[in-house]
């Protein structure tokens, strides 16, 4: 990403209005996200009676409307918001860290590792589970961590800034390697399993209860806590490591924080819902178009808008062909793809 030095000057010269602008932006995007999360559970493939769903006199075990609302729809909306917000925020961080507008949460190869883990769990049908994490999400987390650690080890040198080129190339290479492993696994197994692995790659938010959300929530919370410390340093880092260093940013520390938080959020999102594409790249660019380049605004606004975007996409995915569903990864790419191109042409 090329940000002119004047942008830095602009960001730094206007410290006072930022508070107001941040408040207004967050209120606006927060309202959109809240609206999406409130409306989405009310809509679905089947009409339900809300009064019946909230009727405490009917035992929950027998109350179909309540189970549809609280077990089928609410966890889905929660997962969509968490995954959408996490991936969009990670996209912002990655684009700043790698100073590349095409970077997204999957650039570091972490999603590839997660996919290999998930494939292994699907193919070998392992029984290992951990608390609310069932075998496939658990294996996908392990895979993501393994690749994350490898890329981190390749990209960092003691007390020196990370090389973005090394990070990018290591990520791309590991992604390619993971894909080779995935294809090899798919080649070995039966057709039914090949389809199931492919289906996992399309993304799925129908988690059937809050368990899986609870399972990855700690990772997401840590990731967002780290994100919160990043924005001002990212502003300078996205201009260039040298400029950032001259202005008092501890570049190595910021990069590591950015890497670790991005890796945690990506692992959590992919373990929960599979690698849902396009959010991490489209949402940050869209938000930048509307709010400018200041990361103090872009990062939280992207998280909120990403949440709303995925909740909306999942709503489309589960209703457009009801009673069957469209995999949500197809919807995000079909809406996100053309939109991204339009944005590209407009900006050029």
């Amino acid at each position: 990403m090329t940000v002119s030095p004047s942008a830095v000057a602009r960001v730094e010269a206007a410290p006072r209005p930022i508070r107001l602008r941040l408040t207004l932006t967050l209120l606006g995007y927060g309202a959109i996200a809240l609206l999406a999360c409130l409306v989405a559970p009310l809509v679905g493939s089947t009409p339900i009676s809300l009064s019946r769903a909230f009727d405490r006199s009917i035992p929950f075990a027998d109350n179909v409307d309540a189970q549809i609302f609280f077990l089928a729809r609410m966890p889905r909306v929660a997962a969509s918001a968490l995954v959408g917000g996490g991936l969009a925020a990670t996209g912002v961080v990655m684009q700043a860290l790698l100073r590349n507008p095409l970077a997204d949460p999957f650039t570091l190869g972490i999603s590839g590792g997660a996919a290999v883990g998930a494939m292994l769990a699907i193919v070998f049908a392992t029984g290992a589970s951990l608390g609310p994490l069932t075998p496939v999400p658990l294996a996908s987390l392990v895979g993501a961590f393994v690749v994350g650690v490898i890329v981190y080890a390749l990209g960092t040198r003691p007390r020196r800034p990370m090389s973005t080129a090394v990070l990018l190339l290591a990520g791309v290479t590991l992604n390619a390697f993971c894909w080779a492993v995935i294809m090899f696994l798919q080649y070995l197994v039966d057709f039914a399993e090949v389809y199931r692995t492919v289906r996992w790659l399309m993304g799925d938010l129908d988690i059937g209860g809050f368990g899986p959300v609870v399972g990855v929530l700690p990772l997401m919370v840590v990731a967002f806590a780290l994100f919160a410390a990043l924005p001002s340093s990212l502003n300078l880092l996205s201009v260039g490591a040298d400029i950032a260093a001259t202005r008092g940013v501890d570049v190595a520390r910021t990069q590591r924080l950015a890497f670790v938080s991005a890796a945690l959020a990506t692992s959590a999102a992919v373990a929960l819902a599979g690698p849902i594409g396009f959010i991490g790249i489209v949402v940050p660019h869209l938000v930048r178009l509307m709010t400018g380049v200041d990361h103090r605004v872009v990062l939280p606004a992207s998280a909120l808008f990403g949440a709303a975007f995925l909740v909306g996409c999942d709503l489309v995915a589960r209703t457009i062909l009801a009673p069957v569903e469209v995999p949500v990864g197809i919807v995000t790419a079909m809406i996100g793809g053309p939109f991204f191109l339009w944005l590209l042409v407009r900006k050029a």
Binding site: S45, L71, A72, R73, R318, P323, V324, E325
Partner: peptide
């Protein structure tokens, strides 16, 4: 009623089909 060999139902659809 779904004219396909395989269907991937969501939790919501399962609850509706009973």
């Amino acid at each position: 009623d779904i004219r396909r060999e395989s269907v991937q139902p969501s939790s919501e659809t399962l609850l509706t089909r009973m």
